[in-house]
Amino acid sequence: MGGGRCFAWVSLALLATACGDDRGAGASGDWQAQMRQIRMAVRGSEDDPQLARRWDAYKRRLEAATGLPVKLYESSDYNGAIQALSSGQVDMANIAGGGYANVDAQIGDKVAPILTVRDAEGAVGYYSAVLVKADSPYRTMRDLKGKALGYVDFNSTSGYLFPRAKLREQGFDPDTYFGKSTFAGGHTQAVMALENGQFDATIINVGGGTPEHGFTTGAHYTMARRGVVNVDDFRIIWTAGPIPNSAIVTRTDRPQAFIDTVRGAMAALPYDDPEMWTQIGQADGSTYTAVDRSHYADIIALRDGDLAQRRGRRP
């Protein structure tokens, strides 16, 4: 069954390459000669070796499928990948929903999501969570009134955009409810800042489960597996989700044959090499599924709403 679906993906990609429109291609239709290389923006993370393995696997996969060298543009923050994609410095990216919403606001349909990860049960999302120290007195959001909260990054979906919207829906104004709020710069940094007492609570991403049954993935779980922290030193007191998973997005002004080849090659990866798929941190049984802008419509609306809310507060 898996091999058949793999063949179908690859066949569709090849068919689209041969028969589809050659948007952006030269007169000869030789899109490889036109592009010469593939430039992909990814979020760098020196403190998560698994991410480095993932980007290397994607690089090798795309090089084999396209016959072109792939250059990875690693950004230390969210905005770097967003601006590289918006300005056309890269051809594609792996980016979270909030980042895609930012790009969409800047350049609209010049960029489109094509794939996202779906787990074995068919879910295509993860969660935002408020994390506190296990030995703290904080048990609910009401205990955090006037306390210090750590966000991940202004462009983080689970670490800023999504939880702020959900807090407002529940009657907690994130701009006035907490005593102060600060950006940590990343999920790992947010956990370390909490560990070191810089925040009373912080917001991070979690997955591999549900609020009812618990989670198995997320920043503090990754750090615990590496021996950096003890997962039992923390407690989750609030969750929101699910949030649409990150997407592989491409510039739509690139040759259609390139977009179709990327879609087919990446969609077939979990079937062609399931061992590598799990080695790069993807859950057993998960696969890629096709998406478009409509999949992130709620995130786009949340971003617009958050911007409007904050602008309305300005003097």
Results as ranks from 00 to 15, higher is better:
residue 4 G to K: 11
residue 9 W to C: 08
residue 10 V to Q: 15
residue 12 L to H: 13
residue 14 L to K: 11
residue 16 A to Y: 01
residue 20 G to P: 00
residue 23 R to G: 14
residue 26 G to A: 12
residue 27 A to S: 15
residue 29 G to V: 02
residue 32 Q to N: 06
residue 32 Q to F: 00
residue 35 M to Y: 04
residue 37 Q to F: 03
residue 39 R to I: 01
residue 41 A to F: 05
residue 41 A to S: 15
residue 41 A to L: 00
residue 42 V to H: 05
residue 44 G to S: 14
residue 46 E to Q: 14
residue 54 R to Q: 11
residue 58 Y to R: 10
residue 60 R to E: 11
residue 60 R to F: 02
residue 61 R to I: 02
residue 63 E to C: 00
residue 64 A to T: 08
residue 65 A to P: 08
residue 67 G to N: 02
residue 68 L to A: 04
residue 69 P to D: 06
residue 71 K to A: 13
residue 72 L to D: 09
residue 77 D to C: 10
residue 78 Y to D: 14
residue 78 Y to T: 10
residue 79 N to R: 14
residue 79 N to H: 13
residue 81 A to T: 11
residue 85 L to Q: 03
residue 88 G to W: 02
residue 90 V to H: 07
residue 101 A to Q: 02
residue 102 N to I: 03
residue 103 V to W: 02
residue 107 I to A: 08
residue 110 K to A: 11
residue 112 A to Y: 08
residue 120 A to M: 02
residue 122 G to A: 09
residue 123 A to V: 04
residue 128 S to F: 01
residue 129 A to V: 10
residue 130 V to I: 13
residue 134 A to D: 15
residue 134 A to S: 15
residue 136 S to E: 01
residue 140 T to R: 05
residue 141 M to W: 05
residue 141 M to I: 13
residue 148 A to K: 13
residue 150 G to L: 13
residue 162 F to M: 01
residue 166 K to P: 00
residue 167 L to E: 00
residue 170 Q to Y: 02
residue 172 F to M: 01
residue 175 D to R: 03
residue 178 F to R: 06
residue 185 G to H: 07
residue 187 H to C: 09
residue 187 H to N: 14
residue 193 A to I: 04
residue 196 N to L: 03
residue 196 N to T: 03
residue 199 F to A: 07
residue 209 G to N: 09
residue 209 G to R: 09
residue 210 T to I: 00
residue 211 P to H: 03
residue 212 E to M: 00
residue 216 T to K: 13
residue 216 T to P: 09
residue 218 G to C: 06
residue 219 A to N: 06
residue 221 Y to N: 12
residue 222 T to S: 15
residue 223 M to D: 05
residue 227 G to T: 05
residue 230 N to Q: 15
residue 236 I to L: 11
residue 238 W to R: 07
residue 243 I to M: 06
residue 243 I to W: 08
residue 243 I to N: 03
residue 245 N to V: 02
residue 246 S to Q: 11
residue 254 R to K: 14
residue 255 P to E: 09
residue 255 P to M: 04
residue 255 P to F: 07
residue 262 V to N: 02
residue 271 Y to V: 05
residue 272 D to M: 15
residue 278 T to W: 03
residue 282 Q to C: 07
residue 283 A to M: 09
residue 290 A to P: 11
residue 291 V to Y: 11
residue 294 S to Y: 06
residue 302 L to K: 10
residue 303 R to V: 01
residue 309 Q to E: 07
residue 315 P to V: 07
